[in-house]
Design a protein around this nucleic acid. Structure first.
Length: 256
DNA sequence: ATGGTCGGCAACCGA
C-alpha cells in the first residue's frame, strides 16, 4: 500500500496535478494539507470520477485538510476533542486496518509570537491525543505538513536557519517527545543520509532551482507499522508542472 | 540591471 502526503497550497489550483499524480503513480492514500477550500466548494466530482473515496474539512481562505483513498475511509474524526478543535488541521481515519492521522501543524510565524506558543502547545496536545487513543504497538501512521525540519541535514543551511520557527530547539524538543512515544521517521529509515527536501519557499528567488529547501513534510509510523515499510521517497515530479505548489509529495510503501 | 512569490479574496493575511 502506497501512502503519500502533499501540501497542495490550494486544492482548486493544484487539482490537475493531484489527479494526474494520483493515477500515474497508483497511490492508495493521499493526505492533503492547505486545501484552502470551504467544504461546499470541495471538488468531490473529480475524485468520484477516478473512484477515490474522500473526506475533508476546510474553512475560508486558510488551512484545510483532506484524505483521498482507493480503499474505503472509515471511523473519520476531524479535529481535537477539546477546544480549540482546529478541525481544518487534523483528520483521523481508518483505512485497510491502519489508523492514519493527517495533520497540518501551525507554522508559528516568529519565535516571539503568540502563534509560536500555540504551535508548541499543539505538539503537546497531539502527544496527548496519541496517548489517549492508542498504544505505541498499534499500527498508526502520522503524516502531513509538520512544519518542522527534524535535523540539520533537513534544511539547506542549519547555521543560518537555527532559531527559525520550523528549525527551533523548542520545536525539536516537542517533536522528540512525540517521536520517543513511539514513532519512526520512515523517510530517514530508508534514506539515512539523504539531503532531500519537500518544501522550497516561494519568497526566495529560484529557491527550487538553487535547492534552498526544507524537509518539513513527513511520514511517521509506529514501530510495528514502520517494520512493514519497504520504501520511502520524495517525488519532485509535481514540481515540474505548471503552477507547482511550494511543497512536493512524500510517499511511503508498506507491505501489509 | 534599476527587478525580485503565491493563493485567497477583495484589503491585506498567512506561508
Amino acid at each position: 500500500m502506497k501512502v503519500a502526503s502533499y501540501n497542495v497550497n490550494s486544492l482548486r489550483v493544484r487539482l490537475p496535478i493531484v489527479i494526474k499524480w494520483l493515477t500515474d503513480n497508483d497511490i492508495d492514500v493521499l493526505c492533503l494539507q492547505e486545501t484552502k477550500v470551504q467544504d461546499t466548494d470541495f471538488p468531490t466530482e473529480a475524485f468520484d470520477g477516478i473512484e477515490y473515496d474522500h473526506v475533508f474539512k476546510g474553512q475560508k481562505s486558510y488551512n484545510g485538510v483532506a484524505i483521498l483513498s482507493k480503499h474505503p475511509i472509515e471511523q473519520v474524526i476531524f479535529g481535537f476533542p477539546d477546544e480549540p478543535r482546529d478541525e481544518a488541521r487534523i483528520i483521523k481515519a481508518e483505512i485497510n486496518g491502519i489508523v492514519i492521522v493527517n495533520t497540518y501543524i501551525p507554522q508559528g510565524q516568529s519565535p516571539d509570537s503568540e502563534k509560536f506558543q500555540y504551535k508548541l502547545k499543539w505538539f503537546g496536545r497531539l502527544l496527548e491525543y496519541f496517548q489517549r487513543d492508542f498504544g505505541s504497538l498499534d499500527k498508526v501512521l502520522w503524516t502531513g505538513d509538520l512544519n518542522i525540519a527534524p535535523k540539520p541535514i533537513d534544511v539547506y543551511d542549519p547555521e543560518i536557519l537555527l532559531g527559525h520557527v520550523c528549525f527551533h530547539p523548542e520545536v525539536h524538543d516537542a517533536l522528540n517527545e512525540i517521536l520517543s512515544w513511539g514513532f519512526v521517521d520512515v523517510f530517514r529509515k530508508h534514506c539515512e543520509n539523504a539531503n532531500e527536501f519537500t518544501f522550497w519557499d516561494y519568497r526566495m528567488r529560484n529557491s527550487f532551482k538553487r535547492n534552498l529547501g526544507w524537509r518539513i513534510d513527513h511520514i511517521m509510523a509506529t514501530v510495528p507499522l514502520a517494520e512493514k515499510s519497504t520504501s520511502c521517497f520524495i517525488d519532485k515530479e509535481p514540481r515540474a508542472a505548471e503552477r507547482p505548489s511550494d511543497h512536493t509529495p512524500i510517499v511511503a510503501e508498506f507491505d501489509l
